[in-house]
Structure formats: C-alpha cells, structure tokens
Amino acid sequence: MCFSPHEAGFVEALVDLMCPADELTPGGVECGLAIFIDRQLAGAFGRGERLYLQGPWRPGRPEDGYQLPMAPAQYFKHGLAAAERACAQLHGRDFAGLDMAAADLFLQAVAGGKVTSGEVQLDVWFNETVYPLFTQACFSDPVYGGNRGKVFWKMIGYPGLPAVNGLNMTKYRGKPFPGAAAPLSMEDFS
C-alpha cells in the first residue's frame, strides 16, 4: 500500500463522490475502489512497469502521451497534493471536507482544465491518470480489490468468466443472456 493517511482520505472521498451509494451499487469505498487504486499504485504499474523512463525529457502536449520523469505513483501523489492546494485556495478546506455538491463542482472544474495549481496540469493528471484508474477499479476482475462482489459486472450485465459461449452465441443472440445476472470472477475458480 502506498498512500499516507491524508492521501487515502482524498482517494476515499474521490471514489465515494464518483461512485455514490445508490440503488445500483454501494459507495466507492465499499466497492473496493480506493483499495484497487492504492494497490495498483503500490505495485508494478505505480512503479513504472513498461514505462520508458530515459531522458532527455521534453514536455509535450496531451497527444504526446505521458512525458514526465516520474513513475505513476509519484505523479499521482504529486497531482493529488496540487489538487489539494487548489482546493484549499478555492474552498478553504481539504477535498475530503467538501460537501458532495461542492466536491462535484470542484472535480468537474479540475477535469475541464479550469483549476490551475502552479506547474501541474491538473486536467491532464485527472483525465489521463486518475480517471482511467477509477474505471479500471470499477470494471476489473474483483481479484484486484475493486468491483467487490462483482457489483459493476452485475450492474451492466457482463457475465465474466469462463465465457465459453460456443452454443450461447446463437442461442442467446439478440436475447437477454441469463449468465449476466450471476457473473463469475477469477476468484470463483481458484
């Protein structure tokens, strides 16, 4: 695990905002979304696996892709601190201390490039690094800690594994697929 208590608080507030408890799923923390993000950043992905980290370093435009001399975990934390500074400046408190409506507006402003914080491009940080981790947390196999209880798979009707559909392909073509109500994850096979 790689988050400080404060960073964990930010991420927990974030996932509970992005995935509020409602008739479809429990809240984001309860779905394991914060745990998923923490584990991904603490693990190979966060340390920069498969990421070319040799110089020279040339900042670029978003279409150039990731161009920073930082592994994703460092970058995530760096952006998080910058977002907190911007939040404190605008609202006088931490992101986790905002009410839902204010937090939502703040996040929309971050995602839309309307919040600046020194040298950190917060929109790029959120859209290219934070948001993908959020959707991965929701829809990955629960073996990684998110999507607890396969709630997101049940929500959309993804049947998961083992998906051997040789006969189902024609039997359920154009019809509701019964397996979608009870998806199976890798955990169910180990």
Binding site: L51, Y52, S140, D141, L161, P162, M186
Partner: peptide
C-alpha cells in the same frame, strides 16, 4: 483459464506486448 480472461493484465496493462523499457 481463469487467468487468461484478465482484461486488466493482458489488455489494459498490455502484458503480452513489447516492453517499452
């Protein structure tokens, strides 16, 4: 199976592909 059906590992994190490092 079941590890073959891992979207995060093989697709999103491109686990089978050329390693950019």
């Amino acid at each position: 199976l079941p590890t073959q059906r891992d979207e995060l590992r093989w697709d999103i994190r491109t686990g089978l592909m050329q390693d950019a490092t």
